[in-house]
Design a protein around this nucleic acid. Sequence first.
DNA 1: CTTCGACATCGAAGCGCTTCGACTAGCTCC
DNA 2: GGAGCTAGTCGAAGCGCTTCGATGTCGAAG
Lengths: 348, 348
Amino acid sequence: MTGMTDPKGQVTRMATLAEVAKHAGVSPSTVSYVLSGKRSISDSTRVRVQAAIDALGYHPNAGARALASSKSHIVALVVPLRTDLYVPVMMQIAIAVTTTARQYGHDVLLITNDEGPDGVRRVAGSGLADGVILMDVELEDERVEVLRSQGTRASLIGLPADPTGLSCVDLDFAAAGATAADHLADLGHREIAFIGQSEGVYRRHTGFAERTLAGFQEQCRQRGLRAVHRPCDASFEGAAGVLARIFEDRPDTTGLVVQNEAMIAPLLGLLRSSGRTVPEEVSIVAIGPDEPVALQTSPRLTTIPVPAQELGRQAVDLLLGPDAGKPGVTLLPPTLSVRESTAPAPGE
Amino acid sequence: MTGMTDPKGQVTRMATLAEVAKHAGVSPSTVSYVLSGKRSISDSTRVRVQAAIDALGYHPNAGARALASSKSHIVALVVPLRTDLYVPVMMQIAIAVTTTARQYGHDVLLITNDEGPDGVRRVAGSGLADGVILMDVELEDERVEVLRSQGTRASLIGLPADPTGLSCVDLDFAAAGATAADHLADLGHREIAFIGQSEGVYRRHTGFAERTLAGFQEQCRQRGLRAVHRPCDASFEGAAGVLARIFEDRPDTTGLVVQNEAMIAPLLGLLRSSGRTVPEEVSIVAIGPDEPVALQTSPRLTTIPVPAQELGRQAVDLLLGPDAGKPGVTLLPPTLSVRESTAPAPGE
DNA sequence: CTTCGACATCGAAGCGCTTCGACTAGCTCC
DNA sequence: GGAGCTAGTCGAAGCGCTTCGATGTCGAAG
């Protein structure tokens, strides 16, 4: 950041507020108040100051501003390093967070989880960020403890075991699981299978996977469906093995609920090549993928999408919005987009 | 950032360097030199200061540090909003950039392109970032002009039309296109098709697409292959249409080069259901996807991967490394991973 | 015609850090 | 034995901004 080049190509020092003040013939504090609007300013001076700002190409210095006001106007977004969760959804959330934060005049600092809880400590402790948004929250999450003990402003995308005192937002995955079961039950399916995330995800107690499963199983019970759950690794072989086992164990299975976005394409391929048509013989509900993926397949998928954009937006609102800091859990209701991968059970 | 809670749960103000100095019985400047290592310090004081730091849980204040040193230790990463480029690759780059930057003691600020060139102007002009990394660089890119005129430290992932004075790194896409052609030629294919990005990508003159195509076509000419190029939208119908047209126009086509990651799965599905086996009847080389995708398909894909991780790492090295600031273009040589989607042409 | 508040502006005191001399020992070297 | 070092430390001057009184003006209220 050496400075700007003037029309002659000379590098000039960056303009300061004091210079703007001199150029406009007012005191520095007046310029500051013009910028912040924290005190009333006459139209005439406001115009003059604005002109000076434009003339000098002035940008307030972020460091100085942060020091003086002890507000950095930065939020930290902690993203998982892992690649076993659906990447496009992460990206969508990250982008939604960034654009929403900009609307509050904030920027977003990207923190990867390889620093673990220390990343949060560092960023909050140094005043680099005014607040923290955590993605991929686990049930027992060290980072959450750090946030609590530092009194850091934060909002979580996902639910820890104990959300006391925290702002959280997430899809209501239990309801999503139940909705999927309901949809298949309504179509007359009686024997269905749930193809989930890889074992590791369940072992890590990433809440969403367990909540989905619980909601699904409970609803199956209530609707009298026979259901099995199969974790599934993100590989073609994984999908093939799981699928084969399902139809071996329960040849009459006619409905599949899939919560493993990466496996959708392989599954469809496998079903097709094993001669089972979708949706005539097997119906599929996908939990997780958003529009793009669902529409790229053939047949188009009936889905319960993760509202990535909305999650990102709300996380920022919770952090910076009018009633920021009020703890509470926001669960977004799932929506079912019925497309072409589900149909009445055979013989219905 | 209210502060820390002490063992009794009281919120305490954050420790300052001055307090650390007092606690250690030295002057503030000494503490600063301990932290920065810019002057020699006796072991005994170093130890005492370190003890004070630990005791008080001191973290230097980022804003003050930035103001005093006019270095923010932040780099801005400008990511495209668009979703028509391969998202996982972007994400991998972003993560590689972040972890590499941390090794240089820097953090990463995420800027989305919805601000356009102004985002770059703002971040550089305010001293928020020490440098900028641009992704998805277009041939004529406004942001590049801003960087030039502000004299901002920057490195680009991708190549603008005129890279004079800039540090750039990218995959050698021309070589990648040539390598793909070569591989198919070596296997005896004579009639091949290039399935590319959506028309929009070519229209925007995103350099990589054009460079790939040029390298591919040139090599086809030299090897005496008949080749056609077909842009392809990211939808199932798009893929279906393109594929149908290819085999209508040139029924003897036996090789496909695909530079459109999202379309790989649909294409494989379509080929299978149209009764063309891969690789016995049709060989496929994919340019772009990295490991995960290539291994999730069946058959596993022969690919020329985009070395996302390496691109991210090098972009940061170019920005912060030992000989930062030296302009120049780094083109990474493509690698061909031969897997199961390519085989000798039928009848060879 | 005072008195009071609202409005508009200024001055100065920091915010917490870096950094540049300056200073003190304790050496070496001739 | 004084000149010239180097290593180790300190003090003070900012970096560019925000913010809190203080000050001056003017019209409305009494």
